[in-house]
């Protein structure tokens, strides 16, 4: 079964962050819905839209933290974590991250800081999953939370 099939509505929701954010920004929700074959046209739950935006923003910040840690400590193998967070952010439609603080100069401290950031993201997405309205969005957020937990374990293994 493909990821698209699993989440049913869909493909739709993993594309969903992008869909909703882009649609809101451009006012072309019907066009976007047509593109992914949703019929009737969705009326996004405003609360779910807020959850998606918050998740996308937080994931962009996480991606920036991973990139900064990787740049500051090139000896750390963060390829798997970089790939996972990048895939998550793409599924949410992307977002801009504000400039973040540089990682600690000490490599061990940098590892701890990144693992802690992933722990926080894990808890936040789990909380979002519990309160989200759309079942498909619930699944995406719950899976993201579990993915963050896996990434945190990878990072801690580098200590």
């Amino acid at each position: 079964m493909t990821r698209r099939a699993l989440i049913g509505t869909g493909a739709v929701v993993v594309g969903a962050g992008g869909l909703l954010v882009a649609a809101e920004a451009t006012g072309r929700l019907d066009d976007v819905a047509d593109a992914v074959g949703i019929d009737p046209k969705p009326q996004p739950d405003p609360d779910d839209t807020r959850v998606l935006r918050r998740a996308a923003r937080a994931t962009a910040e996480l991606q920036a933290a991973v990139a900064a840690t990787s740049a500051g400590h090139p000896g750390l193998d963060l390829a798997a974590v970089t790939a996972a967070v990048g895939e998550q952010l793409a599924a949410l439609g992307g977002a801009e991250a504000p400039a973040g603080a540089a990682p600690p100069a000490d490599q061990g401290a940098a590892v701890d800081a990144l693992a802690q950031a992933l722990d926080i993201a894990c808890k936040d997405r789990a909380r979002d999953a519990v309160t989200a309205g759309s079942p498909a969005l619930v699944r995406v957020l719950a899976a993201m939370s579990a993915g963050h937990a896996q990434s945190a374990r990878v990072v801690r293994s580098l200590r």
């Binding site: 990821r3 699993l6 699944r139 899976a143 993201m144």
Partner: peptide, 10 residues
Amino acid sequence: AAPRAFPGLP
């Protein structure tokens, strides 16, 4: 298993 972006999704 290797880490995944979305565990539980195929």
